[in-house]
Computed example of a mutant assay.
Amino acid sequence: MAQQVRAIVISGNGTNCEREVANACRLAGADVADIVHISRLLAGEVDLNDYHFLNFAGGFLDGDDLGSAKAGANRLNSAVIAGSDQTLADSIRAFVAAGKLVMGVCNGFQLMVKMGLLPSLDGDHSQTTTLTFNDGGRFEDRWTYLKVDPDSPCVFTKGLKGIYLPVRHGEGKFVTESPGILDELESRHLTVLKYCDADYQAPTMDYPLNPNGSSAAIAGICDPSGRLFGLMPHPEAYVHRTHHPRWTREELPEEGMGLWLYQNAVTFIRENLL
């Protein structure tokens, strides 16, 4: 077991992309990619310590009734694991402290932000950013061009310049608690992904290239370690050329661009955690 790359994808309470995420982990080279319902973690039947890569999948946690992933964040912060005095949030923070990887996609990104796992500029896990209603006031389901910050510490985007991924969300507009938070994110190169033009050159606030009006065109951020990463676009939805909307009209490589993020994660684990 010690030499296996082990990924876990948490399901339940409204997630609906867990199978795609687990598939992406396996295609990227993970030896194990378990889909685990949150109830099993809370019952103490599954231990996060047995894994290297924690995935929060997209979906509609609790129907987004209190805002995207807010109820889910409250649950993780307060629910105690059976047979212990730890909340599941405590277990996740211990997982992070052990140098392991966490990625949240769409609703998973919203969850990480509202738990304070991102951006965690001072390591105190207090919420300083959020994801709110799209400027257009409607659900967006479209493909987006994303510019990667080459100077970011993000493990997942190492060596990448730009990627093309779909979004599907109603609350994807990234905003910060204060202008100072945004300035710090920018200066520390934690704004990993930005909505951009088709040449992956210039970030844009123009709709529909920027589908939600995110501050500074931000589509994804990481924490200062680069090991925690959240993004609104769905990398698990483009891991094979046939997932591309124009795959019958364009010459494309077999692997979809989204798979690159998972491959970087697996490489990091093999080089640093095994």
Rank of each mutant, 00 (worst) to 15 (best):
S68T: 12
G59P: 02
H37N: 14
L27G: 00
I38R: 11
A33D: 08
F53C: 05
D34F: 07
V36G: 07
S68K: 14
L76E: 04
V32T: 12
L66E: 06
L54C: 10
A30C: 08
N55I: 14
N74T: 08
G29T: 00
N74I: 12
A71L: 14
G72A: 13
G29H: 00
N74C: 10
A43D: 15
F56K: 01
H52K: 09
D62S: 14
D31M: 03
V32F: 10
A30S: 12
V46N: 12
D62L: 01
R26C: 01
G44Y: 12
A71V: 14
L27I: 00
A57E: 02
F53L: 14
A30D: 04
K70E: 04
R26W: 00
G59V: 06
I38H: 13
Y51F: 13
D64C: 04
H52C: 08
A30I: 03
H37F: 10
F60Y: 13
L27W: 00
L76Y: 06
G67Q: 03
N49H: 12
C25G: 01
E45S: 15
R75L: 15
G72I: 06
A69Y: 03
G67P: 02
N74K: 14
G29F: 00
D50H: 13
A43K: 15
K70P: 00
D31A: 06
L54M: 09
N74V: 13
L54T: 05
R40F: 11
F53H: 11
D34I: 08
V46M: 10
L41H: 12
N74R: 14
A57F: 04
G29D: 00
H37L: 09
L61C: 04
L48C: 07
L48F: 04
L48A: 06
A73N: 05
H37S: 10
K70G: 00
G59D: 05
V36E: 11
C25P: 01
V36L: 09
A30Y: 02
L48T: 07
S39Y: 11
F56D: 02
F56I: 03
A69K: 02
Y51S: 08
D64K: 02
A43Y: 12
R26F: 03
G44H: 11
D50Q: 15
N74D: 13
D65M: 01
F53I: 14
L48P: 07
H52G: 10
L66C: 03
F56E: 02
L76F: 15
R75D: 07
F60R: 08
V36H: 05
G58E: 04
G59H: 06
F53V: 11
R40D: 15
L66D: 08
L61R: 00
I38K: 10
D62W: 11
R40W: 09
R75S: 08
S39N: 15
N55H: 09
L76R: 05
D65H: 06
A33E: 07
N74L: 15
A73K: 05
D34N: 13
D65I: 10
I35A: 09
A28T: 00
A57K: 02
L27Q: 03
G67A: 05
G44C: 12
A33L: 09
G63A: 05
A28V: 01
N74P: 00
V46C: 10
F53P: 09
R26T: 02
R75K: 15
G63Y: 04
D34S: 07
S68M: 13
F60Q: 07
D34H: 13
G44Q: 12
G59M: 05
A69G: 04
K70V: 07
F60P: 06
Y51K: 07
S39T: 14
G63F: 06
